[in-house]
Write a protein that binds this DNA or RNA. Structure first.
Length: 683
DNA sequence: GTAGGGTTAG
């Protein structure tokens, strides 16, 4: 025993020397309780500091002090608190050193050690400790099993999970609430919903966590409807859903039905103590179901409800700003991030880059990127896509190669971003190169998205036949995007033969989609086959297919204003049209001739010109010109592809008014400056 | 003295 103690002491002293390097003689640990000149240093004061979540350097200093104090050093309850503190500082290895140096460990030390590993994502290590417990002559208890089960669920380790289930039954702990809940979570995570449900049904004591674990089991496996059924069941048991229920729902909330969204919203509204997490989840529900306006609206209600948004809230709501190109709203949220010092935070900063990118603000996106301490694959991919969408393919490619040099391993999404950047900028050689790099070097099996990029790349660059051959050789069934890319290419390069094939496939895949009929009729119109244009038009009419009306959004102050084709509903309508008249006059002086190819139907030239003049993007541009200071950039979001005539017009207007005009259409960004567009007319 | 479910990005 004495020998053991000496060994224990000497190990601790070694440890002391290693931590003492950081030790300074600061007065940080003077505890002015009774006599200021004599600081009290005892178990209680140490625990107080440790309970306040000290940072790692404070912790090391305190630890050094404890080591030199014989009494405190051999105080096992203090050791336990130290272990927890190191774990909270993400130092499970130090926790492990402390653990190893404790001579007579009871089960509590094992429990804390396992938990430290679990909380720091070292599930294998956690299970190793667990498996070694019995060799120390110690029985796992009702605290040990839930922890070990958590290690299993986090690492989807069904095998060990089942073993634990067996052991639990043997020692009669299967009726324990915490153990039962751990089992439900473990089975749920491992996609064994029947087993999870069995455990739930056999428990004689269930609480809200039991049900939430069951809910999570379904959502983690994409079974949202069944998850909601569980919510209804728990209500029948008179258990109120809580923030945990909301959080459990979130893995499966993408693209669900309006009824399901209403159900979740009702649950959220009925909740008495919502808490921040519920707000965050509700915002995420809206964002993930294409309801960005609702997401921003809910976010704006947090302050009146005295709920302070955190990093998760911000990372959840920013994509909504991106979806709407709500640059000012996004900027305000960015200011909040700065004010509340929420950065550095990788996920949050990535979301900021993406938001700025989707608002067409490359400079701001780049600034965030440059200031980041850590960058992951998402960071790089976000910026690469940003450059790609704006037609800065060279920058995107450069960035991609810098990313490779930085040692990051690109995943399939990173390759989508670089391939798509190449296709938007006509970088045929580079695109082919990276496709080869992806398949040969990184052994990534191409997905439909990669094929679609390649078809787009080849087709747009004029290799329509090769693009078609590429489709024929694909190992996957071509989808709408693939044929859509081909049809687009056929329109640009006037390839009637392949265009008809692509259109035919598209009409089968998506018979109600007006855009494809429009593309086909454009091809006919370009070829002067107006009788065929008329045929397409009558087919559309007989099938009741209507062209989606073009709509352009522009943000002004706190509001987003929408304009439809020929819109005269706006209060400033007269001024807008007057402004356009003036602009058209100046444009004609610069040699503007309306491009009538873009018009759908075979109508008189003059009528076509009139039709084009009132396209929604032109109205939105005029509206922004009237209502903003000279020199302010104008940002427009369009629900369709920008038409050829509006593209020419925007170039000229950017020159005449010396304004930067940024148009985001369904495919990409067009940055118009001094009469030029960033796309270089390649779109 | 220790414990269970669940929230953020390309």
């Amino acid at each position: 025993m004495i020998a053991n103690f000496i060994l224990y002491k000497s190990r601790f002293m070694n440890f002391f020397y290693s931590v003492a390097r950081n030790f300074s003689t600061s007065t940080q640990f003077s505890f002015r309780i009774t006599k200021p000149e004599k600081p009290i240093f005892n178990e209680e004061s140490c625990s107080q500091i440790l309970d306040r979540n000290p940072d790692i350097s404070t912790l090391r200093k305190l630890h050094s002090k404890i080591i030199v104090d014989d009494q405190l050093n051999s105080n096992s309850s203090l050791s336990l608190i130290l272990m927890r503190a190191y774990s909270a500082c993400k130092q499970p290895t130090i926790t492990r050193q402390l653990f190893d140096e404790i001579p007579d460990k009871n089960v509590v030390f094992f429990n804390v050690m396992i938990r430290s590993f679990v909380n720091n994502n070292r599930f294998e290590d956690a299970l190793l400790i667990f498996k070694n417990i019995s060799s120390h002559g110690i029985q796992p208890d009702n605290y040990t099993y839930p922890c070990a089960l958590k290690a299993c669920s986090c690492s989807s380790n069904l095998q060990v999970g089942i073993q634990i289930h067996g052991a639990v039954i043997k020692v009669g702990l299967d009726s324990n609430l915490f153990v039962g809940n751990g089992l439900i979570a473990m089975y749920g995570k491992c996609d064994c919903l029947v087993e999870a449900r069995n455990v739930l049904d056999c428990m004689n004591n269930r609480d809200v966590v039991s049900w939430n674990s069951m809910v999570a089991g379904y959502t983690q496996n994409g079974r949202f409807n069944e998850a909601l059924e569980i919510c209804k069941e728990m209500k029948l048991e008179r258990l109120k859903p809580d923030a945990g229920t909301m959080a459990s729902l979130s893995p499966a909330i993408t693209s669900t039905s309006p009824e399901n969204i209403s159900f979740v919203k009702a649950m959220f509204d009925e909740m008495t103590a919502k808490g921040l997490v519920s707000w965050n989840v509700m915002i995420a529900v809206y964002v993930n179901n294409l309801m960005p306006n609702e997401a921003i609206e809910l976010y704006s209600q947090m302050e009146p409800h005295r709920i302070e948004p955190n990093a998760v809230t911000i990372a959840s709501v920013l994509p909504a700003c991106g979806d709407l190109s709500a640059f000012m709203q996004g900027k305000r949220i960015h200011e909040y991030v700065v004010r509340k010092k929420l950065a550095p935070n990788l996920v949050l900063e990535n979301a900021l880059i993406d938001m700025y990118a989707k608002c067409g603000c490359l400079v701001e996106a780049r600034e965030i990127f440059d200031q980041m301490r850590n960058r992951d694959i998402v960071t790089w991919t976000s910026l690469i896509s940003a450059y790609g969408m704006s037609g800065q393919g060279r920058d995107a490619v450069d960035l991609f190669s810098k990313m490779l040099n930085s040692g990051l391993i690109p995943d399939q999404i990173a390759f989508v971003s670089v391939l798509s950047a190449c296709s938007h900028s006509g970088l045929l050689t580079e695109g082919r190169h990276y496709y080869k790099v992806m398949t040969d070097e990184y052994k990534i099996v191409p997905r439909i998205e990669h094929f679609s990029c390649m078809v787009d790349l080849l087709g747009r660059a004029g290799y329509v036949d090769e693009a078609y051959d590429f489709i024929k050789q694909m190992p996957l069934e071509p989808n709408e995007r693939i044929w859509g890319a081909l049809l687009s290419a056929c329109r640009v390069h006037s390839n009637m033969e392949i265009g008809l094939v692509a259109a035919d496939r598209l009409f089968q895949l998506s018979p109600k989609q007006a855009g494809y009929y429009v593309l086909l009729s454009n091809i006919y119109a370009k070829a002067g086959r107006f009788e065929d244009v008329t045929t397409v038009r009558s087919i559309m009419k007989s099938k009741g297919i209507q062209k989606l009306p073009g709509c352009s959004d522009v943000e002004l102050g706190n509001k987003v204003y929408s304009f439809l084709v020929g819109d005269r509903s706006h209060l400033q309508s007269e001024q807008i049209y007057a402004e356009l008249d003036v602009l058209f006059g100046k444009m004609k002086e610069l040699g503007y001739v309306p491009e009538t190819d873009s018009a759908l139907h075979d109508v008189e030239e003059e009528e076509k010109e009139g039709h084009l003049a009132i396209h929604s993007e032109k109205l939105a541009i005029a509206f922004a010109l009237i209502n903003t200071e000279p020199g302010t950039p104008i940002r427009i979001t369009k629900n369709l592809r920008i038409c050829g005539d509006c593209h020419i017009a925007a170039k000229l207007i950017s020159k005449i008014t010396e304004r930067e005009i940024i148009v985001r259409d369904t495919n990409r960004f067009h940055h118009f400056r001094i009469g030029e567009c960033s796309c270089g007319d390649y779109w």
